[in-house]
């Protein structure tokens, strides 16, 4: 990844905050609906100094992190196994790949009620939504990586008597690692979204950030709503950066930088 100079995004950040103040002032002064778009400093105040709210924000954040991590782990295991299976034979790929595409094109929201009826309105259903949303990039990137092996390298293994399993372990999977990490990074960002979306539909059990957003919003608590939304967005960014960094730690030494 290319280094981005820090000052350019900083200027944009300043502009966004200024615009936010302008809109907040407009809601406050002209429409007298200050809670719809609260001033940035009120949001900060709510998140940092209101002890009770802060406590709740952290608890819900933790729950969202747990759901994101669980969903991502399951999506990684299922996605990689699916891709490995497809890489073993052309006919398997032809038979199974369409379903990976379909999985991605199903409007998740359309089947959410069904998931609720079958798996209940708690943890399990939220994890299922998270897995469904983040699965496709794991499948497609792993498959792409496994197939990226050079033909001559493949033949080198064949000439020296390597079987399927050895070739997978010593050639295909290592060669696929950079692509797998790209998939992981994308899937992780989507998993955060999945965890928040899951919250909005399945509100029983320990609540996550999605629940907090809805509850704050319905109570017309503008600063609380914004604080929860920003926390959720930051979680997405942190997770994306984390997996980018992990990818570079594992494959950066040998992989072509992209």
């Amino acid at each position: 990844m290319k280094r981005i100079p820090w000052w350019q995004p900083t200027i944009v950040f300043g502009l966004v905050v200024a615009l936010w103040y302008a809109i907040a002032a407009w809601y406050d002064k002209s429409k007298e609906l200050a809670f719809v778009v609260p001033y940035p400093h009120l949001v900060l105040q709510e998140a940092l100094t209101d002890g009770q709210f802060r406590q709740q924000l952290l608890e819900n954040l933790l729950q969202t992190v747990v759901i994101t991590a669980t969903g991502l782990l399951i999506a990684t295991v299922i996605g990689m196994s699916w891709a490995v299976l497809m890489s073993q034979a052309r006919w398997l790929e032809h038979s199974l790949y369409p379903y990976a595409v379909i999985l991605q094109t199903i409007p998740i929201l359309a089947i959410v009620p069904l998931i609720g009826t079958i798996f209940g309105y708690e943890f399990t259903s939220r994890v299922i939504v998270t897995v469904m949303i983040s699965l496709f990039p794991m499948v497609s990137n792993t498959l792409f990586g496994l197939a990226s092996v050079d033909r001559a390298q493949w033949e080198l293994f064949r000439l020296n008597g390597a079987g399927r399993f050895t070739t997978l372990l010593k050639l295909q999977l290592p060669a696929a690692l950079p692509a797998i990490f790209v998939g992981l990074r994308t899937a992780a960002g989507l998993a955060v979204i999945g965890a928040i979306v899951g919250d909005q539909f399945f509100q029983r059990g320990t609540p996550g950030l999605g629940v907090l957003i809805q509850v704050s919003n319905s109570r017309l608590n503008g600063p609380g709503t914004f604080a929860a939304i920003i926390t959720a967005s930051l979680l997405g960014v942190v997770v994306f950066l984390l997996f980018g960094l992990l990818g570079r730690l594992v494959t950066g030494k040998w992989a072509d930088q992209s």
Partner: peptide
């Protein structure tokens, strides 16, 4: 005992020189 040298060096990018050279013996 046939050796085959391809046009491309076909080294495994994640392995050091030593581990690349060990590869065939490892496969055998």
């Amino acid at each position: 005992r046939i050796g085959y040298v391809f046009q491309d060096a076909t080294l495994l990018a994640w392995r050091s020189v030593r581990r690349n050279v060990e590869l065939l013996a490892e496969l055998h």
